[in-house]
Amino acid sequence: MNSRKIEILVGLFVALAVAALLMLALKVADKGFSGNGETYELKAKFDNVGGLKERSPVKVGGVVVGRVGSIKLDEDDFTPVVTLVISEEYDQFPTTSSVSILTSGLLGEQYVGLQPGFLLDENDILKPGQFIEDTKSALVLEDLIGQFLFSRNND
């Protein structure tokens, strides 16, 4: 085993460890490299996004069709704008579609449920970057309990 070969192997070992650290930093601890396959973006305004996170799934009838790209506040009216990154495969959603923030299971993760509407006209297909008008916010447990108590006091 000559020393040149040993140096190369040690170099590879260190490079492997650095790659592992990079993966831990970028993929495990922080934002990952997303993007597999062609995608397009849709936007939706919610009153409250609850516990929705970036990269949460977007589902149609339980089938994952995309991910949440980014969640930002609109600078004019201070409502959250959620960017949905949808697979190019599913590009035929009508403009009458609605989105809502749902929870999987009682304590599970929150995701975006997309409910396709009726296609009235051939031109009424959601185009990339277009806003989905019909949105339903996340269910916040505290609000729900508050409403319940309020309605009981009225009785």
């Binding site: 922080d30 990952g32 970036e54 949460s56 991910r67 993760e109």
Partner: peptide, 11 residues
């Protein structure tokens, strides 16, 4: 779900 695996981990 693969996205949940990574996104919940990242959070």
């Amino acid at each position: 779900d693969s996205g949940s695996y990574w996104s919940v981990m990242q959070a």
